[in-house]
């Protein structure tokens, strides 16, 4: 393709975008909305995956003891535990943490300005004595947890495995939803683009007819419309990318807050996934824009 031809196609494509201002606006809007919904779900699933892996790699469980144990009973639990070789087989180490210690640890994590609230608990500590147990083999966690729960003086065992299993279920659901959404929204976007281009070709059907009569090839006629679709897809995906950036920050904030009660959540920062997200958005915008227009013009060129 010659340079002046390329520049002609681009000029015509850009002219088309402005000429069909409202439809272009609608098309870009739909692409942005579709990419955002799609991207948010996909990124959420991606984060869940990271969290799950993180949790699965963390082999600590928390054994909380009954309320009102004496200091002696608290220490004796450790001895009992070390005597149970069937449990100890899967335990690397265990650390007793008294309820006072637990409160102090907690106070440290709390911001300065709220610390007075914790200090109010000093005389009436709501926490309980506990043991932090480090496992050898995470895969046998279930078994170890059951045995620990059966021990005398154990109120509850907090294994993150439960959380992990729930999260896995959530993630699988999210993956299915994401995939469905992606398919539906891509189809919707392509449909809207196709209608924009249909309008564009309808608008210029006389021009197209004349082009064909004077001997323009089909591909020559097609190019400006392909570029119009391409530009719509490109604009849509770039806007969607920057919005996604914002939305992602809000979203991860929410997740961290929502899950902070159960586990220390580390979400993936947008900076780390910037390039792939941009790449995927651009690709999706390209496919939808160019695909939508190519399919539409094909019908118009059968003369």
């Amino acid at each position: 393709m010659k340079r002046y031809e390329t520049s002609y196609f681009f000029r015509e494509g850009i002219r088309g975008v402005f000429l069909h201002g409202f439809m272009s606006f609608a098309a870009v809007g739909v692409i942005v909305a579709c990419l955002l919904i799609m991207g948010s779900f996909a990124l959420l699933a991606f984060n869940l995956d990271a969290i799950i892996k993180d949790i699965q790699n963390n082999n600590e469980i928390l054994v909380v003891l009954d309320e009102g144990l004496s200091r002696e009973e608290f220490v004796r639990f450790g001895t009992t535990l070390s005597g149970r070789t069937d449990i100890m087989d899967n335990i690397a180490e265990y650390t007793p943490i008294s309820k006072d210690q637990a409160l102090a640890d907690f106070a440290e994590k709390v911001d300065e300005e709220y610390r007075y609230l914790i200090e109010g608990f000093a005389t009436d500590n709501p926490l309980r004595d506990r043991y932090v147990v480090k496992l050898i083999d995470v895969n046998q966690m279930q078994d170890t947890v059951l045995k620990l729960e059966a021990l005398n003086g154990v109120a509850q065992v907090y294994a993150r495995l439960d959380i992990a299993q729930n999260l896995v279920r959530l993630r699988n659901a999210m993956n299915t939803i994401s995939l469905l959404l992606i398919l539906i929204l891509l189809a919707v976007s392509a449909f809207i683009i196709s209608n924009t281009v249909k309008l564009a070709t309808f608008d210029r059907r006389e021009e197209i007819g004349i082009m064909r009569v004077v001997g323009a090839t089909k591909s020559f006629v097609r190019w400006p419309f392909v570029i119009e679709g391409f530009l719509l897809g490109l604009i849509g995906s770039i806007i969607a990318f920057f919005l996604q950036w914002r939305v992602y920050a809000l979203l991860t904030e929410r997740i961290s807050e929502g899950l902070s009660g159960i586990a220390l959540i580390k979400t993936v920062s947008f900076g780390e996934i910037l390039a792939p997200v941009l790449g995927i958005f651009l690709l999706a915008g390209f496919l939808v824009g160019v695909g939508g227009s190519v399919l539409t013009i094909r019908k118009f060129l059968r003369v």
């Binding site: 010659k2 004349i210 004077v214 001997g215 020559f220 006629v221």
Partner: peptide, 28 residues
């Protein structure tokens, strides 16, 4: 080819109407 109803593009000038036919066959 010439038609009874001229088939010119109304939005383009006389010059552009003629130049257009050259451009679409790849003339520089």
């Amino acid at each position: 080819v010439i038609f009874q109803d001229f088939r010119l593009i109304e939005k383009k000038s006389v010059y552009e109407n003629v130049a257009f036919a050259m451009r679409v066959v790849g003339a520089s």
